[in-house]
Amino acid sequence: MKLAIIGLGKMGGNMARRLLKNGIEVVGFDFNQDAVNQISQTNGMIPASSVADAVSKLSGEPKKIVWIMLPSGEITENQIKDLVPLLDKGDIIIDGGNSNYKHSQRRGAWLAEQGIDFIDCGTSGGVWGLENGYCLMYGGTKEAADTIEPIAKALTHEDRGWAHVGPIGSGHFTKMIHNGIEYGMMQAFAEGLDLLKGKEEFNLDLAQITELWRHGSVVRSWLLDLTAEALAHDQELSSIAPYVADSGEGRWTVVEAVDQGVAAPVLTVALQARFRSQDSKGYSYKLLSLMRNAFGGHAVKTK
């Protein structure tokens, strides 16, 4: 089986590597030609010099499958439009980025008019997906979902970590809520650890405590694992600025809560805390920034 990946950044590049490792042929293109060359030379990816070249190298496949790993918004929108003339009816476009689910619904409806299948795939796993496998939640028709199942298995753990969750839009919707929950979990850890640090009379060792919690505790999690590992190296976080970015998913989740009339105070306050960090200072904000970097490789603002 063969597919093309457009966008070989941190996530897209690692996805290409994992697919190649698990027997899926990958044609790759990125405007950063160094990224293309590196993965081609070290992992055996088929290099492409342009999007059109990448698609042409899928000729002979029963269905051409193009996986887009680009920033949400106009870049993804334009790339999908540019792909349509290069594809045939029955071919499949997968958007594996963090697009707004409403945009995915619209794009899916438009592509259906062109005879092209669309899958919106929420992708979790961050920079660790190459080693640990990703979590994929995707929406689309059953036929398209069945077609990409071997790809999903190669990117995950074959028998788990992937699911066709519903129609077009449902994949990115599920990922949006996933990220909203993530905001709340991160905020809770950050605030709790800030309180521990603030109790100066006990002189608590946060590296010791987070490592302790990893074993048998009800709050044990991968997020805690990453936090404990980072604190083992530097508890003061002196090089990290107390600034926490928000990439959009948290905002969309809170807007969805308002639209549905569903109370989501934890998710809302977690989002607002990120806003506040952009004009404030504090240890908890440094911890939030550290966690985002640990699981997703998101840039850390330094002093």
Rank of each mutant, 00 (worst) to 15 (best):
D159E: 13
K153R: 14
E149D: 09
L130P: 02
E191S: 09
K175H: 07
D95R: 03
H103S: 10
R160V: 13
G140E: 05
S170F: 12
L155S: 03
E131F: 05
G97T: 02
G184H: 10
G192V: 13
R160Q: 13
M176Q: 10
Q187G: 12
I92N: 02
M185F: 15
A190S: 14
Q187P: 15
N179W: 12
M185Q: 15
L70R: 02
D88R: 08
I94F: 07
G169Y: 09
Y101M: 01
C121K: 02
A109V: 09
I80M: 08
I92E: 07
G96T: 11
S104R: 02
Y138F: 11
Y138G: 01
L83V: 04
L155K: 03
D82N: 10
A154D: 12
N100H: 08
V127A: 06
V165A: 10
I92V: 08
V165W: 11
T76S: 09
A144N: 07
P85C: 03
I116E: 01
G171K: 11
L193E: 12
L195C: 15
M137E: 05
Q105C: 05
N78C: 00
M185S: 11
F189I: 11
Q114D: 00
L195E: 15
T147E: 14
C121R: 00
A154T: 09
N78M: 04
G140P: 03
I93N: 04
K197P: 12
W110A: 13
K197L: 10
E182T: 12
F173V: 10
V84S: 04
K142D: 15
M69N: 04
D194L: 09
I119S: 00
I181T: 13
W162T: 05
D194F: 11
M69E: 03
D117Q: 06
K81I: 02
Y134P: 02
G97S: 06
